[in-house]
Design a protein around this nucleic acid. Structure first.
Lengths: 143, 143
DNA sequence: TATTAAATAGAAATTATTCCTAATTAGAAA
DNA sequence: TTTCTAATTAGGAATAATTTCTATTTAATA
C-alpha cells in the first residue's frame, strides 16, 4: 500500500490516469504538511501552468471519495488533505499552525477496546477513532 | 461554571453585555447540535429581526478568543460552535450528519497518561486531547 | 447625564469551493 | 492503429461562508 506509485494507486481505484491526476496525487504525496487544495494548485501550476483550480478541487474530491487520500479536520474553514490513508492520528501544534502525523497503533487499540465496553456507544457501529493531540512546542518562546 | 448565566459568562470574560451578545450566547447554549454561525443567525433573527450576520460572526469569534465557547472541527468547510467548554469528545455519526457530545474523563486520563510516556511527544506541551469517534447508528437502514 | 471606547448594522469585499459548458482526451473496442 | 465515446479538463461564472469597512449607536464609567 505504502509503496505504490501514483499510477498504481489511481488504477487500483479504477480511475483513468491523466497528467492532472498524476500531478495532484504526486504533489500531495510529496507534501507532508497536509496542504490545502490551493496549496496544491499553486505548487502544481509551477510545473503545469494551465491546470485549472476547479480541476484540482474536483480531482481531490474524487480521490477522497475513492479513499485514495484523506481529508483532515481543521477548526478554520479550509479543508486539508492527507496522502496517508493508514490509520493514524494528528498533532495540532502551536494553535493549528502545524499538523503533524502521529502513528501509534497500540493507542488506537487501547481506545477501541475501552470504547467497546461503553454502553453509550452500544448502538453505534464504530468505524474509526481519531485522536487530536493539541499542544505547543516547548522551545517556542512565543506567548 | 456549568450553571453560569449568559450575563455572568460575558462579565467573567470581561465583555460588555449587549443584547446581541446575550442572544448569540443564549442561542448557542440552547442548541446542543453544534450549530454553524448561520444556524444561529437564522434562529436569532426570528426574535431579533435586524441583527446583522456580520455581528453574529464577530461575536462568535470574540467568544471563542475569550474561551467562552469552543469551535468544532468538521471535514466540510463550515465552522461549528459548542457552548460546552468542559473537556469532552465528539461522536461523528452517519457521515458527519450528526455530532454528539461524549463525556468520559476516565478515557481522557487514560490517554493522557499513555501519551506522557511517548518520546515523540517529549518536547510537546500537551494542552488537550480530543477523540473523534466516527461511526454509524446501527439501526439506520440507509446504505 | 455626559463621555468615550467599544459594538453594531448594513453592505461590500474576500476566500474557498462548486457548478457549468464546450473542448479535449484516455482507454476500450474494432 | 485508428475510431469511438464516456469521462475529464479549462476557464469562467456562481455560490457559500466569512471577513472587512465605515458610519452610527450604545454600554459602562466617571
Amino acid at each position: 500500500m505504502k509503496l505504490m506509485s501514483v499510477e498504481t494507486k489511481l488504477k487500483a481505484a479504477g480511475m483513468k490516469i491523466t497528467p492532472q491526476r498524476t500531478a495532484v496525487l504526486q504533489a500531495l504525496m510529496d507534501n507532508p504538511h497536509h496542504p490545502t487544495a490551493d496549496d496544491l494548485f499553486k505548487t502544481i501550476r509551477k510545473v503545469y501552468p494551465n491546470i485549472s483550480a476547479g480541476t484540482v478541487y474536483h480531482i481531490l474530491n474524487t480521490l477522497v471519495s475513492k479513499k485514495v487520500i484523506g481529508k483532515i479536520e481543521t477548526a478554520d474553514n479550509v479543508v486539508r488533505y492527507d496522502a496517508i490513508t493508514e490509520k493514524h492520528h494528528h498533532l495540532y501544534l502551536n494553535d493549528e499552525q502545524e499538523i503533524v502525523d502521529f502513528f501509534d497503533e497500540a493507542l488506537s487499540g487501547l481506545i477501541m477496546e475501552y470504547l467497546q465496553k461503553n454502553h453509550q456507544l452500544a448502538h453505534i457501529d464504530i468505524e474509526d477513532v481519531k485522536i487530536q493531540i493539541i499542544g505547543k512546542s516547548k522551545q517556542s518562546p512565543g506567548d
